[in-house]
């Protein structure tokens, strides 16, 4: 058994400890290294291929049902379109943003956006039919800055830039 004793510090070492603590406190009080993202006013820079809301390229869809089969949350149902083919609809009450549908799509018809803060007025609206899915989601953006985390000299720091992140990728 190892018995651990509390360290015995002499007067000078203790004073050094106090001064060190006060120094760190003062440094942080003057120039805090805080990492908070003030969300509505700032938005974190999200990586490319972020799994956000989905957009359907209806011309690419071949009605192969793969997305509806793979969906682990059963959020995708197929409905018949005006041309007689079956097209997917996404129920965002069930969707878990796993993007299996986008990955399994043989034609790459599903496009991802960086919109992840989704709000609906009621439950019926959460079922996005194909007509709604082909349009990009409506955005309400309040942020003035984009924030990203970077490592500098071995410490995590927060970098703010005025350039806003592009949440919806442009059509090629």
């Amino acid at each position: 058994m190892v018995r651990v004793k509390s360290p015995e510090l002499n007067f000078i070492e203790r004073m050094k400890g106090h001064l060190d603590a006060l120094r760190v406190g003062l440094r942080e009080a003057i120039k805090p290294t805080r990492l908070t993202v003030q969300y509505p006013r700032e938005r974190r820079k999200l990586p490319d291929n972020f799994r956000g809301m989905l957009i359907l390229d209806v011309n690419g869809c071949i009605s192969c049902f793969q997305c509806a089969f793979i969906c682990p949350a059963n959020a995708i149902v197929m409905k018949r379109g005006p041309d007689g083919k079956l097209y997917p609809c996404v129920n965002y009450a069930k969707c878990i943003f796993c993007h299996f549908c986008a990955e399994t799509c043989t034609k790459g018809a599903w496009k991802s956006t960086k919109v992840m803060d989704v709000a609906f007025e009621n439950e019926e609206e959460m079922l996005l039919t194909t007509e709604k899915l082909i349009k990009p989601p409506k955005l309400g953006r309040e942020e003035e800055k984009t924030v990203s985390y970077e490592i500098k000299n071995g410490e995590l720091i927060l970098v703010k830039s005025d350039k806003l992140d592009e949440l919806i990728p442009k059509n090629e």
């Binding site: 406190g25 942080e28 009080a29 805090p32 290294t33 990492l35």
Partner: peptide, 10 residues
């Protein structure tokens, strides 16, 4: 305020 700054809050 000062406590928040030292504890990395706002």
């Amino acid at each position: 305020k000062v406590t928040a700054r030292v504890q990395w809050r706002y």
